[in-house]
Design a protein around this nucleic acid. Sequence first.
DNA 1: AACTCGTGGTC
DNA 2: TGACCAAGAGT
Length: 352
Amino acid sequence: MKILDKQRFQNDLLNWYDQEKRDLPWRKERDPYRIWVSEIMLQQTKVDTVIPYFYNFMDKFPTLEKLAEAEEEEVLKAWEGLGYYSRARNLHTAVKEVKEFYNGQVPDTEDEIKKLRGVGPYTAGAILSIAYNVPAPAVDGNVMRVLSRIFTIYDDISKVSVRKKFEEIVRETIAADRASDFNQAMMELGATVCTPRSPACLLCPVQQHCEAREEGVQEILPVKAKKKAPRPVSLKALVAQDYSGRYLVEKRPDTGLLAKLWQFPYIESLTESDEDLKSFAEELSVNAEKFSYQQHVRHVFSHLVWEMDVYQARGKITNPAPNQKLLTKEELKELTFPVSHQKILYKLEEEL
DNA sequence: AACTCGTGGTC
DNA sequence: TGACCAAGAGT
């Protein structure tokens, strides 16, 4: 590996960051709680997507204490549309732990902070460095991309072992007295200059330190294994209304995909006919004569694709199960729905 | 180690 | 338009 002039690299990077850093909502002050929330929201999620959610979340839960005291339903509602909902549930759990066992103070040591639910190696380092200026590595996809190019490292960055290798490199490279700015600068560089495609090397503050740039291989780094194509799943969903116009909805199980979110009942089905849907309706105690086709919804997740045929029915509905409710359209707005089922809700709104 | 877990933007 | 990608963590 090429020898890096550490001092000059730090200077070039930090001077650039001092000039060019973006004005982001979680950079206004150094509240560990706000840093924490922002880091959880930013996992696998772009800054532009996070910003409005962050403002809303801080409006609803301005302090760690307020979040700890909130109902889970309310926390999920604030996360609605952001995806990876276990992040919200884990954050809620962890914040309650901090309130109870750490006197409401976000821990500032690697050992303690990593024990918190939803706080993995990246987020631990991010909170420690950004909130407390502790010189811990915060290695995300940006940092691995930047470093793989600086040092022309061809290891597959999707492997855990490779992330650890990058963490060791950061430990040796980080500006000891400016850990917060160093880590944020590395990520900012990756997000705005050293991008996955067409990196702006001519604008890069550390281009002179970059081996990939020197060899012209910046476009083929980093190496990353391809993801498998999402698996298709065919569903039939039922929008059932009783005679007073209320809708039958249900809460998903506590674990797994979209845990604890609400939805219209559905079955997995590969058949063309609606016979299985009708027997499903009977099981739900939906006594309807007519089932009308409403729309097809395709929704792509990370690892699967829902191909959902949506049907509407109106009839007598008896004995909703414990996880089910009959609610008016207005009441539905209070619940948290995944985007796939929001597409159905939107259609209902459109039709009236 | 490989799989699960969401969504929206980009090319 | 479909494949790729994003400030990853849990199992």
